[in-house]
Design a protein around this nucleic acid. Sequence first.
DNA 1: CGAAAATTTGATCGAAGTCAATCATTGTGG
DNA 2: CCACAATGATTGACTTCGATCAAATTTTCG
Lengths: 187, 187
Amino acid sequence: MFSLINFLTNISPLSDDAIADITARVKVIDLPRQRTVLRAGAVCHYLYFVNSGLLRLFYYRNGKDITDYFATEQSFIGGIDSFFSRVPSRKQIETLEASQLLALSFTDMNLLLDRHHDFERVARLLSVQAFLSMQERLYALQFHPAKQRYDDLVTANPTLLQRVPLGFIASFLGVTQVTLSRIRGQR
Amino acid sequence: MFSLINFLTNISPLSDDAIADITARVKVIDLPRQRTVLRAGAVCHYLYFVNSGLLRLFYYRNGKDITDYFATEQSFIGGIDSFFSRVPSRKQIETLEASQLLALSFTDMNLLLDRHHDFERVARLLSVQAFLSMQERLYALQFHPAKQRYDDLVTANPTLLQRVPLGFIASFLGVTQVTLSRIRGQR
DNA sequence: CGAAAATTTGATCGAAGTCAATCATTGTGG
DNA sequence: CCACAATGATTGACTTCGATCAAATTTTCG
């Protein structure tokens, strides 16, 4: 729990009042591996902070499983569009390893955002960060060949490769698993 | 000026106090076409709202001019990463048509964000929107062939094609102008 | 151990890139 | 106001990266 508060205050300071209020509302959830956290077609009611473990966000396109995002320790995951707009999520979330999540419901989130300007500040800064990292990802997809995207991912997250099947990595990088297999073969 | 207030309050309500404060700080800037608004290498000190006209955000990659974003009427434009992190911008902004901009400086922005929780709320919601639209763009780049991305752009913004050179559209869509020329040729 | 899943390897295909030439448009100076 | 240079758009020939289809091999796990 402290890890979340620590993470948030690192982005922008929070009053004791806000911290107490957040702490009171966050639910701790322990899950084994391979557990669905959000099912496609359901509205996403929670935003999750990964205290420990590993999850992925994914969806199906033409019957193929496409990984959109990996959430490692100390990061957030959720069906963001569904969470904020209250429409059914096209995407699913599942644990890839046993994980401990800190969950904040939509209603609690709004309550915290209303009550605490400093919390809204943190949320704003996180959103801008998310926007900028999507920009980077778009740029990489447009200009970096598959091999470089793979190398960059391995550099940024060396353990990931050992922790998840190749196919998940491949679709996350925007290539087929066949292509990714060839890419790493040469070297 | 009212157009900006209208745009912002449409996202989330603002107090009269906040509205007055914003109005007092926004500068109106009239520019002819083909005018550089932000130069690469400079820190972006302003965030702009396009009251009228058309601008683009672009950068050079291997000597090639890459358009990143078109800002039509009633939208925002800025070197966001530079604006918030105060580092020199890699990207440039220029007017493509005579434009009227409403500019908010970094210092004024922070002042408004500090003073008005409701303004920070609007900024947060805008950031989330920006994040989600980048997601869509990433998805389109990954899965929609160039022809479809082109058709979708034309549908979403029918006038754009007449207003800007093909090369700008092409790099924005993530193809060469040669390819885009072929795409529209067939039909 | 053996079935199912994951990965690798091979052969072929296709969308888009590159290089290069031609054609069209625009805009400016004599 | 026309001519011509500069810029923008099209077309052609060829290449390349990654996709697809298919089979073989390896790994995982009940």
